[in-house]
Design a protein around this nucleic acid. Structure first.
Lengths: 353, 353
DNA sequence: TTGTACGCGTTATCAT
DNA sequence: ATGATAACGCGTACAA
């Protein structure tokens, strides 16, 4: 009975421990532990004391201390999420989905930013691995953050990368989307509407960007319309970035009749820019986005876009990290890819004559 | 040396402990502890052993175990976020802001859903308080969840409520927005544009909803145009909810020339509905939302809305919970209210003649 | 200047 | 059927 108040939280009320329960019940603390944990195998517990202890524990409002349990090796049931830019609507939705999928498996999500800690990977590790997360999910492409990756490899947590883009030799399992198939679907949709002059607006920061841009170029060449100079416009992945991309695109000759964007955020920017410039959508210009973020359904007109199979991808990621079918760590590193369906809404229409 | 592998994580690599460092350096574990924690006051440490221990610790890749530290009473630097519907764009943004504000104070955010656990408050408590969060931030109005509130009062964590709406006798500190002032600003803006027939679209689930609706009624009465029957339409806080609200509103006589919505999500729904019905915005109908969610700037036309001072509110909440100026728990429970500025964009215009 | 011993709340392994 | 006891990794008062 050394320090009694020095240890207390600021609110004063000390938590009820097993010892308290044991003392109140007049039994040993180990007995309480057995009863409360439903003694796995050893030997039957007397129904009498069992009921008494359970009653007292309940009455005293006993709650097991997960920290003490974790110290004994129990999983923390914490899933870390490393997200580069939580301001990006896409990643916001991803965090939502992650939180939901994690919860279904009894896990809680801890959010960690990467932006400021890009240099000092230690900081991030101290924030996540140090929290003893059972698993860590990387949201986006981090293969340029070498320090981070190095640190993550040393960690005990099960790391899984989502949307790692072109980084297919990742040391961690990855789950992503078939960017090429998505872009192809978008292009096929546009060509079937008569479009031939199709531009592309991309963003550097996005991990899957390279794959999407490459797929665009390849497929354009395949259909006999290799992208002319200026048809690929790279900007920042923001509404404003997309908005500013429109003017230079419309100045091109031949003038594009359709635009595919690497993300819905860019598409919304282009859409807004078109509204400002008085360009009719889809009359004068068709737009196809990528991701199908929630607001894509509420733009005017609704945004035609390649739909990210969000639940599937995030679900697979959580499963690989902390699920019952998690990767054992042996054999080949698994890389899962999901196919994105095209969602046709109002921003795509027949090519102008 | 009892169980050595039963304790190990699945990856096998056991973490480096202070004991390992001490053994490698040939000193006592307590010495390592002192050196690594930069011995607060006691007495100077020999530079010789100090350097040696630090070197070995670094070389071995020693990392303090936060769990063991937490068991000793150290703060977990975890901030729990209880959010009712993480699917709501507004709360998604709130979580982002929370994550940013928390990080600035060295805290990480743990996300907990409330939706499914509304009945069993124990579940949620087991997910958050059990994680030994130093603080808990309630996002939205939970005063109906009596079990949750009861449990939260017993917790050691510092609970703070954000957007608790009309629940001003909350046992926890609260931070919110001046709903009445926001609605008033919206109404003044519309009346100054000549509008008199102004309807209101609200959502039940939102905590601040009552205050906003009441402010609407009161101010309408004040300006001599008490809201006629049907002018207050309550629906679900979704795009579809707002979309479906438009038709009945337009059927009213006198027909409204403007609509104020309780949230931007509803406003976007109304806007989309207008697009479907061919109602010109703002020519035939003006719309003013509430919250200023990011996509409000990208609608066509841009959404006029009451801007939630998000950073201020969340910042104040974090500060009250785990900040340096946190509420000591004594005296009157603090309730902070921030004023929301009106952001005028394209959905509001002169009333039709 | 450094080593020893104890306790935080659990679980698990011995004895009784 | 239950009680004592040893860890888990760390911080710290106390002894040397």
């Amino acid at each position: 009975m050394a320090s009694r108040q020095s240890n207390g939280r600021s609110t004063g009320r000390r938590a009820v421990t097993m010892n308290d329960v044991a003392q109140a019940a007049g039994v040993a603390q180990s007995t309480v532990s057995r009863i409360l944990n439903d003694a796995p195998v050893p030997i039957p517990v007397s129904q009498e004391t069992r009921a008494r202890v359970l009653g007292i524990a309940n009455q005293l409002g006993y709650r097991p201390d997960p920290i003490a349990r974790a110290l004994r090796g129990a999983p923390t049931m914490l899933l870390g999420a490393v997200v580069r830019d939580i301001t990006d609507p896409f990643f916001a939705v991803a965090v939502e989905a992650l939180s939901i999928e994690a919860k279904e498996r009894g896990y809680s999500v801890v959010i960690g930013h990467a932006r400021a800690a890009a240099d000092e990977a230690l900081v991030l590790t101290a924030v996540l691995e140090a929290r003893h997360c059972d698993g860590i999910v990387l949201l986006g492409d981090f293969h340029r953050e070498r320090h981070l990756v190095e640190d993550l490899r040393k960690t005990h947590a099960r790391v899984v990368g989502l949307w790692h883009g072109t980084w297919l030799d990742s040391p961690f399992p990855t789950v992503g989307v078939d960017n090429a198939a998505g872009i192809r679907a978008a292009l096929d949709h546009l060509t079937s509407l008569g479009h031939r002059q199709i531009a592309f607006v991309g963003a550097e920061m996005f991990g899957d960007e390279q794959a999407r841009q490459r797929a665009y170029r390849e497929h354009m060449a395949q259909i006999g319309h290799p992208a002319p100079a200026g048809y690929v416009h790279v900007t920042s992945n923001t509404i404003d970035g997309g908005r500013a991309a429109l003017a230079p695109l419309l100045a091109l000759r031949p003038r594009p009749t359709a635009v595919i964007t690497a993300t819905d955020v860019l598409a919304m920017g282009v859409l807004y820019g078109a509204y400002e410039c008085g360009v009719g959508i889809p009359g004068e210009l068709s737009i196809v986005g990528f991701d199908n973020i929630p607001m894509a359904a509420a733009t005017v007109p609704g945004l035609t876009t390649v739909a990210m199979p969000m639940a599937e991808i995030v679900g697979a990621g959580v499963e690989l990290s902390v699920g019952t079918d998690r990767w054992a760590g042996d054999g080949e590193v698994p890389h899962r890819v999901f196919e994105p369906p095209l969602v046709v809404r109002g921003t795509s229409g027949p090519a102008p004559a």
